[in-house]
Nucleic acid binder design. Structure first.
Lengths: 241, 241
DNA sequence: CATCAGACTTGTATTATAGTTGTCTACATG
DNA sequence: CATGTAGACAACTATAATACAAGTCTGATG
């Protein structure tokens, strides 16, 4: 069986990088070149492969270093909306509208499996203008630890820091009804993006359910598809029953 | 019973390939030639037989290698909508509505940078019911290779097989206007999911732009977020200007 | 302290070579 | 006529060797 040299080198480098501290420098390309008895071009191709994995990065005149963020964010190049607002210098606020312990609606109960839940409804503002209405449900025994001011001051993921592990997110569309139209300052019947998310804890059990409504004229989802595209049809779409 | 040499060789190769790692390289044709004491042409015919099984593939100047899985679909656990329909036993059809070479609208021209484009508009049916209206733009010099029946019979990604590399997909919402409402068999003002996609070629240049409209009551996007969730806010959302 | 030269780094070419597949022609054999 | 052998050539790939541009750091110099 033949083998490609730069792939061998890339594998070796991946191994080393995984056991190295983030931010630490790799040997220079010419050093690696002599060490592997390969030309600089070959070493470079290997390095570029590892970079494509998100494990390392390079700066001209400086060198190759282990990437600080070992978990590459393949899914989307954009961060959270809050971080976006912050970097663009806009002011982000949230206003809690409702905060109640109650019996969950059927579709929430089916997912969370709790007889009593905390429901928090709030509106998110960017520069004073509303851009999202968010409803979050979580089991009552978890929600009892939070006060209204906790929820008002901190995002939910901070309060549950470290407990959240993965999520499934479905994106749909709806039109604004009277209640939502009022909150989002759009006319009744305006198109909305509706996002339902089920967030799991470290053990994979769902512990958080949330519904987000965005006015379509101000928001859109962006998904980067770095690899081969299997179809012109949007990936991730499914027909609902 | 005389056995045909290149079929014997093909059988032997099939055996080896099944026990080899995907992506690994086979010996070169001339090596196999000496190993099997057969001419290179004969070995080649055997290799081509195995390739027709989909087990291996070749690249000129590189070699023969064990075929990898069709597509490493990391992004979402769901496949394309066509594959979904197929596995669920539903009937998928498409009907081409418009097929024209013309000057592109501004937002298409800005992305593709072409003075003339091919625009194809079609409606997708599942079990006879419409579930998507799709418009695809591509530069005229690329589109000239395709006929109307090409587009009607094959998905676009098949016609451009191997050329497509990555894409950026934005998901938004809109309401159905008269034209779309008619095509999708929904009332005017019904919520629609609107997906715009820019697909790039191997060099990262955009070569395809498409717009997809789905009736919201029948469709939704599903995005799996396997890693840490940074926020309760949906990932990938951004504010538009 | 500010500045500048020099050593070292990555980024990006070009050229060369050996090895590979893709394709063709010519010929032999049953 | 299908099957197999032998050979030649084009096109492509991986790799090496080299050169130069451009960015980063360090330390000497004034």
């Amino acid at each position: 069986m033949r083998s490609i040299r730069y792939q061998e080198i890339a594998d070796e480098l991946r191994d080393r990088v995984r056991n190295a501290a983030p931010g630490s420098l790799l040997p220079s390309e010419s050093e690696l070149s002599t060490e592997f008895s390969a030309s600089r071009v070959t070493v470079r191709r290997a390095l570029e492969l590892v970079r494509d994995d998100g494990l390392i990065d390079a700066r001209q005149g400086f060198g190759w270093f282990v990437a600080t963020e070992p978990v590459p964010q393949r899914l989307e190049s954009l961060g959270t909306i809050e971080a976006q607002l912050e970097t663009s210098g806009r002011d982000a606020q949230r206003r809690v509208l409702e905060f109640a312990f109650e019996k969950p609606p059927a579709h929430v109960r089916r997912v969370l499996g709790a007889a009593k839940v905390l429901r928090v409804k709030r509106v998110n503002l960017a520069d004073g203008e509303p851009f999202a209405v968010v409803t979050v449900w979580c089991p009552a025994e978890l929600g009892e630890r939070f006060s209204l001011s906790d929820v008002e001051r901190h995002p939910f993921y901070e309060l549950l820091d470290g407990k959240l592990r993965g999520a499934t997110q479905t994106i749909g569309a709806d039109i604004a009804h009277a209640d939502e139209a009022d909150l989002l300052a759009v006319p009744i019947g305006a198109p909305l993006l509706k996002c339902r998310r089920v967030t799991n804890d470290a053990d994979g059990r769902p512990i958080l359910m949330s519904e987000h409504l965005f006015p379509a004229h101000r928001t859109e989802f962006v998904v980067e598809l770095p690899n081969d595209v299997p179809s012109v049809t949007p990936a991730g779409l499914r027909l609902v029953e």
